[in-house]
Design a protein around this nucleic acid. Sequence first.
DNA 1: AACGCTAGCAACCGCAGTTTG
DNA 2: CCAAACTGCGGTTGCTAGCGT
Length: 309
Amino acid sequence: MGRAPCCDTKMGLKKGPWTPEEDEKLIQYIKENGHGSWRSLPKSAGLLRCGKSCRLRWTNYLRPDIKRGPFTPEEEKLVIQLHAILGNRWAAIASQLPGRTDNEIKNLWNTHLKKRLICMGIDPQTHEPSSSPSGLLKRLPASPSTRHMAQWESARLEAEARLSRESSFSIPSSTGNFNSDYILRLWNSEIGESFRNFNIKGNKIGRNNSSISLASSSTKCESVSVTAPEGGVLGLAGASAAGSNQTEDPDCRSSISPLADVHHGSDSAGSDDLEDSSESTLQLLLDFPNNNDMSFLGHCDHDNMYSLL
DNA sequence: AACGCTAGCAACCGCAGTTTG
DNA sequence: CCAAACTGCGGTTGCTAGCGT
């Protein structure tokens, strides 16, 4: 496929930081005419910039609906959780955070969240404990079919995210009660359905690629671990039922593994339970105590790690 | 005060997907 | 159907403010 000549090669086009005057010109022009074709916009607006630069400036900075200012803890948690599902698909993640741009989220991730996860011993790419015991959380190489399924799931999830965004569903950024609803919506969406359908058709969802494991415990913690299609794990964990008097627990991290094993068992046997377990885990989710409590999110094994972020 | 280091962020680069003629 | 044009996205770079020495 032929590529458009790079606009930057054209002579006389300005690069670098935008001046207030340029911003004003761009805003004024788009207010009056809309952006239309980005390629022709600079000329029409009297800007010595390439269209690409104008688009970037508008979408990342000048757009009126952009929310400036620091990310709230809830937004940060959501970014982490969505990253676990979607990976580095910043635009898809941004679509779930009204007023935030993909660039902003990408910067947040690269400068803050990634480092924090690393400091906590969590692999920022897989969202797994980086020192997970071998054989328990370790993934096996994905087969082509499971990888395809994973990609399909990823695409489905993104579509779902978009549908959610376009519908009346919006994520409160400050109330802290959106997450349980969000997860439930995900579960009740095509995603959950697809998990069930895969199972019905005999296409078992492998534990190493697209898997769901949920565990509820009345003792130390409740955890929900959704393994993302591309290897990420959305770890959800509740505070201890007894009121979360949690302390630093060096074994806590490894406590995920037994939970995972409980629900998956061995590779040969565990996956057969998926249909039943998926229904039962959904029920567990629905029955989840304190459903409006943000505290059930986050990784119990790190003393509600996400809540620390 | 000067210097070096680091973090944060805006902007650029280039690839890939989509649209158009 | 094909190639060019256009747009969107993710990765990367470079500037700058803040901080410590």
